[in-house]
Design a protein around this nucleic acid. Sequence first.
DNA 1: CCATATCCGTAACTATGTGTACGGATAAAC
DNA 2: GTTTATCCGTACACATAGTTACGGATATGG
Lengths: 196, 196
Amino acid sequence: MRDDKKQDKHEAITTAAYALLADKGYAGASMLSIAKAAKASNETLYRWYGDKRGLFEAMARDNAQGIRHRLEQALSDDQDAMQALEQIAPLLLSMLLDDRAISLNRAAAADPSGELGAAISAGGRDEIVPLIRSLISRLAIKDTDGLNPTDLFVTLLVGDLQIKRAIGALPQLSQEQVTQRAREALISFRKLVGLA
Amino acid sequence: MRDDKKQDKHEAITTAAYALLADKGYAGASMLSIAKAAKASNETLYRWYGDKRGLFEAMARDNAQGIRHRLEQALSDDQDAMQALEQIAPLLLSMLLDDRAISLNRAAAADPSGELGAAISAGGRDEIVPLIRSLISRLAIKDTDGLNPTDLFVTLLVGDLQIKRAIGALPQLSQEQVTQRAREALISFRKLVGLA
DNA sequence: CCATATCCGTAACTATGTGTACGGATAAAC
DNA sequence: GTTTATCCGTACACATAGTTACGGATATGG
C-alpha cells in the first residue's frame, strides 16, 4: 500500500477507534469492531500496531504531537510572551478537553498496565510543557513565592476539568466557556506572579 | 445475617473490590473475583448490589460520605474560617488522591454508561463542596475578580493531580508533598481573594 | 425445636474480546 | 507479465466476564 493510502487508512482506523472509545469505553472498543468500522482487517491492525494497547499508544503520541503543532502554528514571532500565552491558553484548554484527548484519558484510566498513561504523560512532558515553559520564562516574573509558574499556569487553566470530563461528569465545554476559563486563568496567573 | 455481620461482609467486599480495581482495572475486577476474595458468594453480591455497577456506585457514595465525615471531624467550633481551611486542605487533598478515590475515578472512566461518574460527581457536589463553600463564605473576601472562590480553592488545591493519578502518570503523594501542595494552594488562594 | 430467610459454592447460559492463522485478492515493484 | 508483499475477510483457539439458577448449609427468629 502506498504511503498516502496507508496514511488515509491509519486516519480511518484512529477515527473509528475514537468513536468506539467514546461510545463503548476502552473494553468495548474491540480491535475487531475498530477494524470493521475502518474498513480494514483485524490482521492489518495487529500487523501495524502490535496489539490493542499499541494502537492506543500510537494515538496518544499522534494527539500530543498534533497539540504541539497547533500551538506552534498559533504563535507568531512578533507577539510578546504574554500575548502569546493569551493566544494559546484557550487553544490548549480546548484541545486538552476535546473528545479525543478525553477518550484517550479514559482509555488510560481503564488500562491496568499503566503504559498508556505513561504514553500520554510523556506526550505532555515532551511536547507541550516545554513550549509553555519557554513562553513563561520570557515573562518578567517578579515573585512566585517559590511556586513553579508553569505548573501554576496549567493548574489555573485546566484544574480538575480533565478528570471531570473523563468520568463523564462534565460535558464538552462551549468555545465561550473555554475562552472565559482561559481569561480567568490568566487574570489569576498575572496576579500570582506579580504581573497584574 | 445480623446487621453487624452484614456490615463486616460489606466491608470485606468493598475492600476486595478496591484491591482488584487497583490491580486489574475495572474490566478485570470481576464480580466473581471480588466475591472469592471477600469470601462471599456471587449470588450475595448480586442480591445486595443489583449488578456490577451498583456495587461500584455504592462504593462511590460510601467514599464521599466518608470524606465529608472525616472533614467534619477535623473541624472544631473554635477555629476561624482560615484556620479551618488550613486544617482541612491537606486532609481533603490526601483523601481525593488516595488509592480508593483514584480507583473509583478509574472505574468511572472505564464505565461507558457514565452513571458511575455521575455518582462520584454527586458525592462531590452533595457532600464535600457545601462544606468548603460554607467555610469560604465566612472569610472576609474582598475581591475575586468575579471568580467563584470555592472553585478557585479546589482548582488550586487539586488541579490536575486526580487525572494524573487516574491514568497512572503520578504515584501516590507522600504526606509531605500533600502538606506542601496544600500550603502553596492556600498562599495562592489568599493572594487571589485579597487576604494576603 | 422448627420454620423461614439468606448465604454459599458451583453450574449454566450467554456473550464477547485478544490475538493468530489462512487462503484468496489486490497492489506494487521490477 | 510476473513475482513479491500486503491487505482482507473469516475462522479458530483460548480466555474471561456478567448474570441467573439451584440445592445444600447456615443463621435467625419465634
